[in-house]
């Protein structure tokens, strides 16, 4: 009987598991993850390619590059702080990016200081010759290669430009009454969406709106109201001056990546939060990401609060 507690204690100490943190590595092979988009707007057409890579678990997300001294204040010799500079482990800055159409090739270059910015300032590969203007209805091919031998390719057809029937929209719109937008669909099975913005010196604090996906050829009229921004209308001199209506035609790759699959994670735990995905690729072969295209039509009307 006396031996039983001793046996239990000995078993306990022999069997204690390691309940702490452990470094973890994965066998995953880093793969290119590309976001390439061709945009055909009424007043401009352009494209860009963002080249990322996936990381293994043991890879570093933010690579430390060094420190930079940043001066501020009136007396710049004394007012400064040390800013640590990092490079994203996801970014691929040495890729060769080529978009081709027929026999014509455009080499896109990484331009980190470009005006082509998004929410996070990041590198984008763009056409620096200003000769790349995607044409609706045409098919373009993408090739991305890196010095370590990785590559992805893809192709996309720019949707035909949709057409807003200008006569369907009155010269001015107001937040006090609904407005309607009619458009003529095109026959390339595009998926349509309407976006509206209140323009105020290139910013739009509110009044932005977006329709759902208009997939049926029969739905060619969209009716809505300019969203009420309350006190913001205020002074007519400071208020918005124009109401912009954009009709987009989205090709299937873009629709599948952003809308159909969206931000849905496949594996979810309600209680402890556990989401992830196996990676999306639409219009891309040999890696992850998207090669998509949008074409659009725009009109502007005077906004009267």
């Amino acid at each position: 009987m006396r031996k039983i507690p001793l046996i239990l204690i000995a078993t306990f100490f022999m069997s204690c598991g390691d309940w702490g943190w452990q470094s973890v590595e994965s066998d995953h092979e880093s793969t290119l993850n590309v976001f390439a988009l061709l945009v055909a707007e009424p007043d401009s057409s352009y494209g860009f390619v963002i080249v990322n890579q996936t990381l293994r678990l043991q890879d570093i997300e933010k690579v430390y590059l060094g420190s930079d001294t940043v001066y501020y204040g009136q007396d710049s010799s004394e007012d400064f702080y040390i800013d640590d500079v990092y490079k994203s482990g996801y970014d691929v800055l040495d890729a060769t990016v080529i978009i081709s159409h027929g026999d014509t090739n455009w080499i896109f270059y990484d331009e980190p200081d470009s005006i082509w910015y998004s929410y996070d300032n990041e590198s984008k590969y763009i056409d620096t010759t200003d000769t790349f203007h995607p044409i609706p209805g045409e098919t373009y091919n993408l090739l991305v290669e890196t010095p370590d031998g990785r590559s992805v390719s893809g192709s996309v057809t720019v949707p035909l430009r949709p057409n807003i029937r200008e006569e369907s929209v009155s010269d001015s719109v107001s937040n006090k009454a609904p407005y309607s937008v009619a458009f003529s669909p095109v026959s390339d099975n595009g998926i349509f969406r309407i976006k509206t913005y209140l323009k105020y010196e290139n910013y739009s604090y509110c009044g932005s709106d977006q329709s759902g996906i208009i997939a049926s050829e029969m739905d060619t009229i969209w009716t809505s109201r300019v969203k009420d921004c309350g006190d913001w209308w205020g002074n007519a001199e400071d208020g918005p001056v124009a109401f912009q209506i954009t009709l987009e035609s989205i090709e299937p790759n873009y629709y599948a990546y952003f809308i159909e699959n969206g931000d849905e994670d496949e594996f979810i735990s309600f209680i402890l939060g556990d989401g992830g995905s196996t990676g999306k690729s639409f219009g891309i072969e040999g890696g992850y990401g998207l090669f998509g295209a949008i074409s659009s039509d725009k009109i502007e009307r005077i906004f009267v609060p």
Binding site: S26, D27, H28, S30, N33, F35, N52, T54, L55, R56, L57, D59, E61, Y90, Y257, F258, I259, G262, D263, G276, S277, G279, K280, Y288, L290
Partner: peptide, 10 residues
């Protein structure tokens, strides 16, 4: 979990 990826959202 095998790796990390950056996805884009609209």
């Amino acid at each position: 979990v095998q790796g990390r990826i950056q996805n884009w959202d609209e």
